[in-house]
Design a binder for these strands. Structure first.
Length: 701
DNA sequence: GTAGGGTTAG
């Protein structure tokens, strides 16, 4: 269609006489086409070069096309110049669309200049100014303009107010939306579907379910509920206010739900943790052949990647493409967390290529999620390359790179980036300091960590949250200052949670402090009685001290509580395919090769004097079996699979869902030496880079 | 025949 229209213009325009009729017939078509398609801007220069006579009827539409399409400010300026030289710039329609266009393109001074130079200010040009200023985050200017408008004798209408409402919502000021709605109501405006949709959207953002219900009542009374935009805004509001049941009731009552309503429902279910319901609803929509769009697909991909269903997210993305739904700039940040979680580097790379091809790499969300993905996939250098190439960054971007360095144990790089961040005048937030402090604690930079903890509170006015305390506890703990760490927990203003006590417990394991470990676990068993990790850690500490009766006691306690150990799970990507290995699982088709490889390595290690750490085995079985269980740990299986499936010398990347076990750590160090391989293992905390028999964590984790 | 306001995904 677009190409056809283009050809029509190319062929017919030069030969047509420029009669009033031709203009009248073609220009609106041209303008409508501009507004609809990204090829519009391609058409515009050719139309200009045809010496298209400036037309006060067509210019506004062309100017609006510039407002709607990205990167078209230069063309918009050109159209502005044309209106100036042809003496029609004072036309109220033209100046209104110019104001609108400049505000949409973030050229505020230009918008204000055009507005100031408009002698006869229509309601429309005032409305454009007010809406545009509000949407650009200049709420107080917008309200001032509204007052000026009135005192200059022009009365605002419903469109003026609605524009202000929408602008306030968009610029993150939903708190100002509801009072404005009240004011409109008391000034006697009959609210329409736009006003009600915006109000619902604000109520949702504020999680103000009382206001939301009131507006719902109003919409019901006035029959505005029947409007599609009101329906989807209602679903969105209930979803954001954690009223999933009410949301489902609204959806079921819809006579004919549209795509936006379906999308709002899917997003709402996902947001409320009802992942399976969202997947079921999505499957049902597909089975019905109901219309779905890229927003629905993106919601579902995000739903999976945010809820531990990473493989499902990758699969949905594949299905999305085979269903002919073109991914967009939002799809990438929905998908990439899943790639990062399971280290699906090839999928992540292809998303990177896609972003380059589509020109969406300049989107700060897209590039930030790429930085994060590369870091999580063990490619910190690639993360840095993407970071350096970004034209614009935000706090999330900086946090991604600092957190990436932290995860790789590269604390000095993390600190360097933090310094650079401040030089770029980017304000750090609470996440920045979590990344920075954990970098210091991973690398044992105790003094630096303490310094940043003070800097956070004194220079940046950020209150220490519980997670920051947890970082400091591991920092002190790593340095062996366990009593200080314990003291800090006692002095904390906030209530210490399981992260804080867990950090202390981990430090106790490293330094073999049984007494303090018992203090920490006492609290942990109260705070999270069903977390198997705490029992296992305590048992490991006892085991390392040979306190086998205590080990037995912990196991009994765990059984009594009905706590089951989380199955260990590792992922490795081999030639585009992500393989998942569960501890003790024999189902992988390559299992005989894996076992054979592990046996051969085990024999070699024993010959060199290595003894398997059978005391780390938690299960109550014979010694022989303990050794066998250790060999079945998922990270060993994944490494062995990598060894037998890739050429010698290739580096391997394994992701694990739990903390790496001591025996596996020792074994993989050994493997990295005898096999001459670099092996990266990411556990819940960080990357371990095994090379030539040692690990980048310095045996502290 | 032309201008100003619409809901859903990161």
């Amino acid at each position: 269609m677009n190409t056809a229209v283009q050809l029509l213009f190319r062929r017919s325009l030069p030969s047509l006489p420029w009669t009033r009729q031709v203009r009248a017939g073609l220009l609106p078509l041209f303008a409508a086409h501009l507004r609809l398609s990204s090829t519009g801007l391609f058409l515009l220069p050719s139309a200009l070069s045809l010496r298209l006579p400036p037309d006060p009827f067509a210019l506004p539409a062309a100017i609006n096309a510039c407002a709607a399409l990205p990167n078209s400010l230069p063309v918009g300026r050109q159209l502005h110049a044309i209106s100036l030289v042809s003496g029609i710039s004072a036309d109220p329609f033209i100046s209104t669309s110019l104001v609108h266009m400049y505000l949409k393109c973030a050229a505020l001074p230009d918008a204000h200049r055009v507005f100031d130079e408009t002698p006869q200010r229509s309601v429309a040009v005032w409305s454009a100014m007010i809406a545009g200023n509000a949407a650009r985050g200049r709420a107080s200017e917008a309200f001032q303009l509204l007052d000026q408008m009135r005192s200059s004798g022009t009365q605002p209408n419903l469109i003026t107010f609605n524009g202000l409402l929408v602008g306030l919502n968009r610029s993150g000021r939903p708190d100002k939306t509801l009072p404005l709605l009240q004011r409109m109501h008391s000034e006697g405006f009959e609210l329409d579907s736009v006003a009600v949709s915006s109000a619902l959207s604000a109520a949702g953002d504020l999680e103000d379910v009382t206001a939301g219900c009131q507006i719902h009542g109003y919409a019901n009374k006035t029959r505005l509920e029947a409007y599609a935009s009101v329906a989807s805004a209602l679903l969105d509001m209930y979803g954001k206010c954690s009223r999933a049941e009410e949301m489902l009731r609204v959806f079921d009552a819809l006579a004919s739900p549209d795509v936006a309503s379906r999308s709002a429902l899917l997003a709402g279910l996902s947001r409320n943790g009802r992942v399976d319901d969202a997947l079921a609803a999505f499957a049902e929509f597909r089975a019905q052949g109901a219309e779905l769009n890229v927003v629905c697909w993106n919601s579902m991909v995000a739903c999976c990647s945010q809820n531990g269903k990473d493989m499902e997210a990758l699969e949905l993305f594949r299905q999305m493409q085979s269903a002919g739904e073109e991914p967009n700039a939002v799809t990438i940040p929905c998908l990439l967390p899943a790639c990062g979680n399971v280290a699906a580097l090839m999928h992540g790379k292809s998303a990177h290529c896609f972003s380059l091809r589509q020109g969406i790499i300049v989107d700060v969300y897209v590039a930030s999620s790429l930085v994060d993905m590369y870091a999580k996939c063990g490619r910190i250098t690639d993360a840095r390359v993407v970071f350096d190439a970004m034209p614009k960054r935000n706090v999330v971007t900086w946090n991604a790179i600092i957190g990436g360095y932290a995860m790789h144990g590269l604390a000095n790089d993390a600190i360097e980036m933090f310094v650079s961040m401040k030089r770029h005048r980017q304000k750090p937030d609470t996440v920045t300091f979590i990344c920075l402090l954990s970098a210091c604690s991973q690398a044992g930079l105790t003094e630096e960590g303490e310094h940043f903890f003070d800097e956070m509170q004194n220079e940046h006015g950020i209150d220490a949250a519980v997670v920051h305390y947890a970082c400091i506890v591991s920092l002190l703990g790593r340095a062996g200052r366990l009593d200080e760490a314990h003291e800090l927990i006692r002095k904390m203003r906030n209530e210490a949670d399981s992260c804080v006590w867990g950090a202390l417990l981990s430090a106790c394991r490293v330094h073999g402090n049984v007494a303090l470990a018992e203090v920490a676990t006492k609290r942990l068993f109260e705070l999270e009685p069903t977390n198997a990790g705490n029992y296992v850690l305590l048992s490991n500490i006892y085991a390392s001290k040979g306190m086998l009766d205590e080990v037995e006691r912990v196991r009994e306690m765990m059984n009594a509580m009905g706590v089951k150990k989380n199955p260990g799970c590792s992922w490795i990507e081999i030639r585009n395919k992500v393989h998942m290995l569960l501890a003790g699982d024999k189902s992988h088709p390559q299992m005989s090769n894996i076992s054979e490889k592990l046996e051969r390595l085990g024999a070699e290690m024993k010959r060199l004097g290595y003894r398997p750490s059978i005391n780390l085995v938690f299960q109550d079985v014979e010694e022989q079996d303990k050794e066998y269980i250790l060999c079945g740990h998922s990270e060993k299986l994944a490494v062995a699979l990598g060894l037998v499936s890739t050429p010698a010398g290739t580096s391997l990347r394994v992701i694990k869902n739990l903390r790496i076990c001591g025996d596996c750590h020792a074994t993989i160090k050994f493997i990295s030496m005898v096999e001459g391989r670099e092996i990266l293992v990411r556990d819940t905390n960080r990357y371990h880079q095994f090379k030539g028999g040692s690990c980048s964590c310095g045996d502290y984790w």
